[in-house]
């Protein structure tokens, strides 16, 4: 035993048990020991992530229905994929999803960055304001869904009252959740209300990571505030903004709970986002094979778009 290891034993008494452990595991190489430690994690990952994914891919080629386990499973090949990709209702749901994702991401990014920019100015009471602004994202989507259902109520809802008051209309003269034109915007408003603070938080981290000396150098060069914003603030915060866009884009592509509570996909199918269609096929109609194929299509879409986006993000970061 060398001097260093002896001093280590003195400095860290817990290490005294180490020789006994190595003694017990004598005969195992470092590599084997490493495998021993990571195997449970890999098995868990295989069991709860990889196996279900492979199983879903397999089911997507069959007529399997989870509620009719006694019916023989038949191989259908690409039938479900063909049927989904040529179904106008599915494309309508994808359009609804695209509308929801695009507008929520735009609104949340603009407002989130704006709020972060203001909060970063460290005015008096900015800590308290930050906490207040963050409150909506701390609520459960179920609570938010129910809460906004009341706010949108044409007769007693605060939202209708305020809009009615501002525009001089009777509050009950319009309905946010029951109107074909307004309901897609109703769900965008609620999502923006809930998740703008999240975007703000990420943007704030980006703004606070910009060193002060860069602004000081810009001041010395007599750069205007606007020039500083375009040449320093925005480019340096851009990777963070893009990260926020990525997170919100993926999350909203999968959006289910809040929309389900607010409109249930209605009126008609006006707000039926892809995840609601998927849930109906999987757990109401029990078309397990069909819904597996749809889930795989959605997964590939998100995965593909996210990959393209991450590549763009990396390019921005490396600039």
């Amino acid at each position: 035993m060398n001097e260093l290891s002896a001093s280590s034993r003195i400095a860290y008494p817990a290490a005294a048990a180490q020789p006994r452990v190595t003694h017990r595991l004598r005969g195992l190489s470092d590599r084997a020991l490493a495998w021993l430690f990571i195997t449970p994690t890999i098995l868990l990952l295989l069991a709860i992530n990889i196996f279900p994914l492979i199983w879903t891919i397999y089911l997507s080629f069959t007529n399997y229905r989870a509620n009719r386990a006694n019916v023989p499973t038949r191989w259908l090949g690409l039938d479900w994929y063909q049927s989904i990709l040529t179904d106008p209702d599915i494309w309508a749901a994808m359009q609804v999803t695209a509308h929801f994702v695009i507008w929520t991401v735009i609104i949340e990014t603009v407002l989130g960055f704006g709020l972060a920019f203001l909060i970063d100015k460290k005015f008096r009471g900015h800590g308290a304001w930050t906490t207040i602004i963050l409150l909506p994202m701390m609520l459960s989507p179920a609570v938010v869904g129910n809460f906004w259902t009341f706010l949108y109520q044409p007769q007693i809802g605060l939202f209708n009252y305020v809009i009615g008051f501002v525009f001089g209309r009777a509050p009950s003269s319009f309905q946010m959740l029951g109107d074909v034109t307004l309901s897609p915007w109703a769900i965008v408003i609620v999502d923006a209300w809930m998740w703008t603070p999240y975007v703000m938080l990420i943007c704030l981290a980006g703004l606070r990571s910009i060193p002060d000396y860069i602004y000081e150098a810009a001041e010395v060069d007599r750069a205007s505030k606007l020039r500083q914003f375009w040449s320093i603030t925005l480019p340096m915060a851009l990777p963070f903004i893009m990260l926020a866009v990525l997170f919100r884009g993926i999350e909203n592509f999968k959006m289910f709970d809040m929309v389900n509570l607010l409109t249930g996909g209605g009126p008609g199918s006006t707000t039926e986002v892809a995840s609601i269609t998927l849930k109906r096929a999987a757990f109401e109609s029990w078309r397990t094979g069909y819904s597996s194929a749809f889930a795989i299509i959605l997964f590939v879409t998100v995965f593909g778009l996210a990959n393209i986006y991450v590549k763009a993000l990396n390019r921005v970061k490396s600039r």
């Binding site: 044409p154 007769q155 809802g157 009950s172 309905q175 959740l177 029951g178 209605g266 009126p267």
Partner: peptide, 10 residues
């Protein structure tokens, strides 16, 4: 359309 209360779409 004619005879339900406002907001009775669901």
């Amino acid at each position: 359309k004619c005879c339900t209360p406002p907001g009775a779409s669901n």
